[in-house]
């Protein structure tokens, strides 16, 4: 089981955080209380961040915690608390027998996908040689490693993504505004026309 290329210390922590992430994910989908479920999701984020650190992706790990655990999940909690969601069966995405079965089948498909991906051989040119990341970290710093390709080689994709986000923000604002003024349906259709 142990890969001779990795020390026991590394392997141990990989499995430790992997188990934590999987167990928390299971708890996340099975908890009835929305707040408890949200907190288990935060725990998944943490375990994933730890795994990112083990892959020498320090920056991604910090951003994972900062953005997902620190901002998005706080807003989720805020909304859950504000709405004080009622019975769990009303808010579940997969309702009834057929919904649950569809969810189960989808999960199995994803599991099969993981099995296929982990079984395929990775081309050697895709693999970063060991110690390469440490050299880059020492040379450019934790952020430079990410920022350098992002703002040179992948600049177009980066800018397109930011425009996509901008569109999403504008859309959210537009939706929020419309629900604010839906007092007169006639007036609204006039606006739409």
């Amino acid at each position: 089981m142990t890969d001779p290329a990795y020390p026991l210390f590394y392997t141990f922590h990989f499995y430790l955080f992997g188990v934590i992430a999987l167990a928390s994910a299971l708890a996340f989908v099975t908890r009835k209380s929305p707040v408890a479920a949200a907190l288990w999701l935060v725990n998944v984020m943490f375990a994933l961040a730890a795994l990112y650190v083990m892959l020498d992706a320090h920056f991604i790990a910090a951003i994972q915690v900062l953005v997902y655990a620190g901002a998005i999940m706080v807003v989720f909690l805020f909304v859950i608390m504000l709405l004080n969601l009622g019975h769990p069966s009303e808010i579940a995405d997969a309702r009834g027998k057929w919904g649950k079965m569809a969810a189960g089948v989808l999960g199995l498909i994803l599991l099969a996908e993981i099995a296929v991906v982990s079984g395929t051989r990775v081309r050697p040119e895709w693999v970063v040689p060991r110690g390469e990341m440490n050299r880059l970290l020492a040379e450019k710093g934790a952020i430079g490693v990410v920022a350098d390709p992002l703002f040179t080689r992948y600049l177009l994709a980066f800018e397109l993504t930011s425009i996509l986000l901008l569109i999403a923000i504008v859309g959210a604002v537009a939706l929020g505004r419309r629900s604010d003024h839906t007092t007169d349906p006639a007036e609204e259709s006039a606006h739409a026309g």
């Binding site: 920056f59 910090a62 915690v65 900062l66 655990a69 620190g70 901002a71 970290l137 710093g141 934790a142």
Partner: peptide
């Protein structure tokens, strides 16, 4: 290596 970002991430919790 991420020094300050670590603090930002933690204080956000």
């Amino acid at each position: 290596p991420i020094g300050f970002l670590f603090i930002l991430a933690l204080t956000s919790l």
